Simulated scan of single mutants.
Amino acid sequence: MKSAVSMRRLAGLALCLAVTACATPLKAPDYTAFRAAKPRTILVLPPVNHTPDTKATNGLLSQMTMPLAEGGYYVVPVTLETETFRQNGLSAPDEIIQAPAEKLRTIFGADAALYTTITAYGSVYHVIDSNTVVTASSKLVDLRSGSVLWTGTGSATGADVGEMTGGGSIMGMLIVAAVKQVSNNLMDHSFPVAAVAADRLLKVGPPDGLLYGPRSVKYGTD
């Protein structure tokens, strides 16, 4: 009997320790360099695509300006940036990210550049279903000092934009999977998912997002 009681007490203690560990708050990012740099203008470089989908770079890049602008930053227009790089013989993201920071600052007048890598973009097919997934990570780099001011990741799936499923029947799931496979090959169904991923990736504000930009009414409150 005493042994059983002791075991229950040990189990209870272990549970308490586990709950305490789970409740421990995550360590807040270090914003010291970010606050010192006070970037006002951001250059969003074309994301490097590490997926088989050739639409990934443009699909995500076109969604990245809005969350930054709404967060209080001036963002170098993507069309201006793209044409400038093209005239200088640069079109591939892998080449563009090799450009010297000082050169980027001189040409575009930006305080910081956003470097992004896409690790998932498009439909992931299973036996009886498929799901659209977009995942990317970014780092904000000070073009004056080269310091990394912030890093983040963002991901979204088709469920975030109401992507249809086949319900509970096997036949229904097979039909939906077949329809999605055909339609995804004809158009970019990842585009709306990329919008959600971009919002999550470039969220502004606590606990771990970008700091509010100088055009935000919340500038300096974080």
Rank of each mutant, 00 (worst) to 15 (best):
A18Q: 04
Q181F: 00
V78I: 15
A198P: 09
V179N: 14
P46A: 08
A92D: 10
G209D: 11
E95Y: 00
V196P: 01
A11Q: 13
V76H: 05
T82W: 10
T135G: 07
Y74W: 00
R200L: 08
T151D: 15
R86C: 00
L90P: 05
P206Y: 07
A21W: 15
I175W: 05
G220Y: 05
C22P: 13
D30F: 04
M164R: 14
K27N: 10
A56T: 12
T51Q: 00
A113S: 05
V76E: 00
L45A: 04
N185R: 08
P93V: 10
G89L: 12
A178D: 03
Y121R: 05
G166H: 03
A69N: 15
A11Y: 15
S216W: 00
S91Q: 05
P93I: 12
R144C: 12
L45K: 02
S216P: 09
L114H: 03
V48G: 11
P25H: 01
H50N: 03
T41P: 12
G59R: 02
T116G: 02
E102N: 07
L26C: 03
Y74N: 00
C22L: 12
G162I: 01
G220S: 00
G172R: 02
G12D: 07
A136L: 02
S155A: 15
F108V: 02
V134Q: 02
K38I: 13
S183W: 02
A11D: 11
T65A: 12
T153F: 00
R86K: 01
A36I: 04
R8H: 08
L15E: 08
A198N: 03
D160S: 05
S190N: 00
T24F: 07
F34P: 01
V134T: 13
R40A: 15
D53W: 08
S216M: 11
G12C: 06
A56E: 13
L210R: 09
R200T: 01
G89C: 09
C22F: 14
S169K: 07
L43M: 15
M66L: 13
S138C: 02
V179Q: 09
L149W: 09
E70R: 14
L211K: 03
A14T: 12
P207F: 09
I107D: 13
N58I: 08
S62T: 15
G89W: 11
V44T: 09
V179M: 09
L15C: 11
Y121E: 09
G71Q: 01
N49T: 08
A177C: 02
Y125P: 07
S183Q: 03
R40L: 13
A33L: 14
S147Y: 14
Y121A: 04
V44H: 02
K38P: 10
D188Q: 09
T157C: 06
K203M: 10
P52A: 09
V148A: 04
A112H: 06
Y73M: 10
A56S: 13
Y73T: 06
T65H: 03
F108M: 04
P214D: 03
A198T: 13
R8Q: 03
G158M: 04
L114F: 14
K2G: 08
A11T: 15
F108R: 02
D142A: 10
L43E: 01
Y121G: 08
L13Y: 10
P67V: 05
T20V: 00
Y31F: 01
Y31D: 12
P39M: 13
P25M: 07
Y212L: 04
L201Q: 04
A178G: 07
L210P: 09
R9D: 01
G89Y: 14
L104D: 08
N184H: 10
Y31R: 06
Y31Q: 10
M173I: 01
D111W: 06
G167E: 01
